[in-house]
Simulated scan of single mutants.
Amino acid sequence: MENQTVKEGKTAAIISYITIFGTIIAFVMNNSKKNSFTSFHIRQMLGIFLLSMLNKYLIFDFLGKTIGGIVFLGIIVLWFIGFIGAVQGQEKKIPLLGDQFQNWFNGI
């Protein structure tokens, strides 16, 4: 990844990890001048958000609080991996689904 690209997109990439509102703000910031580093992290965070919604509305409801809590802790770990990657200026894909998130949200 180009150093200049990372420098220009780092702030928006970090903002994307601050709740879904931060992701929306980063998306708007990235919309006028596309930055591949920011887009990468927005896609990762959208995937993490999707996982958290699936956990909230499916796993908690159908499998219970214990399983939902364990999955929630896993999602927190994935969020932390993505956030640290943004802070360090790396395109670090989250384990297991990072490639899928890049494909699913490729238009961003």
Rank of each mutant, 00 (worst) to 15 (best):
N31F: 14
I42Q: 04
I81H: 00
I76R: 04
S32F: 14
N31C: 11
F62V: 08
W104V: 04
N35M: 14
N31W: 14
M53Q: 13
V87T: 05
K65R: 08
Q90F: 11
Q90I: 12
G82N: 07
I24A: 05
I25T: 07
Q90P: 00
K10V: 07
I18W: 11
M1E: 10
V77I: 15
N106A: 14
T5N: 04
N30K: 08
L54D: 05
Q4T: 13
I70V: 11
K93H: 03
G22A: 09
L97R: 01
I42H: 03
M1G: 06
I15K: 01
G107P: 02
Q90A: 09
F62L: 10
E2V: 10
S36D: 15
G47W: 14
G9D: 08
Q90D: 11
G85C: 09
F101L: 02
A12F: 12
N106Q: 13
G74H: 09
F37N: 04
V6G: 02
I14R: 04
D99Y: 08
S16C: 09
M45C: 07
L78F: 14
I20Y: 11
I18P: 00
A12E: 09
T11S: 05
L50G: 04
D61R: 13
G47K: 08
Q100F: 15
V87H: 03
M45E: 12
F101K: 00
K34R: 14
L63Y: 11
F105G: 00
F101W: 03
I42N: 02
T38I: 12
G68T: 06
N3W: 11
T66V: 14
F83C: 01
K56M: 12
N103E: 15
N31K: 15
V71C: 01
N31P: 02
N106V: 15
I20P: 02
G64M: 12
F101Q: 02
N103W: 12
R43Y: 10
K34P: 02
I67N: 02
T11H: 05
L73Q: 09
L54Q: 09
L46H: 04
L96M: 10
V71D: 03
R43P: 01
D99K: 05
Q102F: 07
I59S: 01
F83H: 04
T66Y: 13
G82Q: 10
M1F: 12
A12Q: 06
T11E: 07
Q100T: 13
L97P: 00
F60E: 05
E91V: 09
S32W: 12
Q100V: 14
V6Y: 07
L50F: 13
I67F: 11
S52A: 14
T11Y: 11
K92G: 01
K93G: 00
M53I: 15
L46V: 09
L78C: 06
S52Q: 13
L63E: 08
F60Q: 05
A13Y: 09
I15A: 03
I24M: 06
N3I: 12
S39K: 08
I70F: 07
E2H: 10
G107D: 15
L96A: 05
